[in-house]
Simulated scan of single mutants.
Amino acid sequence: MAEVNAQRAAALARREKAGREPAPRRLAEDDIRRLVGSFDDIRNTLRDADSKDKNNVYRELRLALTYDPGQNKISVEAKPDADYCGVTLRVRGGT
């Protein structure tokens, strides 16, 4: 019984702490410009990279390209692993 009460108290403390997390920081216009501008660096680096290196980057991004011959278009979808990319995902509300 004491162990269950200790686990419950720890869970309640974690929930309370999670509820006090600060709101995400808003990006300033300069931050956004700098971020978008860095895409050019990434594009240029990939353009000049060895094809085996490109393949590794695309695989890590879980990149999928789908060609639609009727519209002569290529759709690109990336599903990078959130843990690998350092993204923190949270569940809000009851679970």
Results as ranks from 00 to 15, higher is better:
residue 65 L to P: 06
residue 69 P to W: 01
residue 61 L to A: 05
residue 3 E to G: 05
residue 37 G to A: 04
residue 48 D to E: 12
residue 19 G to M: 10
residue 12 L to G: 02
residue 72 N to G: 05
residue 78 A to V: 11
residue 28 A to C: 08
residue 44 N to K: 13
residue 45 T to I: 14
residue 43 R to E: 12
residue 32 I to K: 02
residue 65 L to F: 12
residue 50 D to L: 11
residue 94 G to V: 13
residue 11 A to Y: 03
residue 76 V to E: 07
residue 27 L to E: 02
residue 37 G to W: 04
residue 4 V to G: 00
residue 3 E to V: 12
residue 37 G to M: 05
residue 29 E to K: 01
residue 81 D to R: 08
residue 50 D to Y: 10
residue 56 N to L: 15
residue 61 L to Q: 03
residue 17 K to R: 13
residue 53 D to Y: 05
residue 53 D to M: 13
residue 80 P to W: 02
residue 22 P to I: 04
residue 27 L to N: 02
residue 45 T to M: 12
residue 88 T to M: 07
residue 4 V to A: 01
residue 49 A to R: 04
residue 16 E to K: 05
residue 22 P to R: 00
residue 53 D to C: 09
residue 23 A to R: 03
residue 38 S to P: 05
residue 29 E to T: 09
residue 78 A to M: 14
residue 77 E to F: 13
residue 70 G to N: 04
residue 64 A to M: 11
residue 1 M to S: 10
residue 86 G to V: 11
residue 63 L to D: 04
residue 56 N to W: 06
residue 82 A to G: 08
residue 28 A to V: 08
residue 92 R to G: 02
residue 17 K to W: 08
residue 70 G to I: 07
residue 94 G to Q: 09
residue 68 D to E: 08
residue 81 D to V: 10
residue 30 D to Y: 00
residue 53 D to Q: 11
residue 17 K to V: 15
residue 65 L to M: 14
residue 48 D to I: 14
residue 9 A to S: 05
residue 61 L to H: 00
residue 91 V to L: 09
residue 61 L to K: 00
residue 91 V to W: 02
residue 44 N to D: 15
residue 64 A to P: 05
residue 76 V to R: 00
residue 81 D to I: 09
residue 43 R to I: 15
residue 48 D to S: 13
residue 81 D to K: 07
residue 48 D to W: 08
residue 59 R to G: 11
residue 28 A to S: 10
residue 58 Y to M: 12
residue 23 A to P: 06
residue 79 K to S: 11
residue 27 L to K: 03
residue 11 A to S: 09
residue 26 R to N: 06
residue 58 Y to R: 10
residue 89 L to W: 00
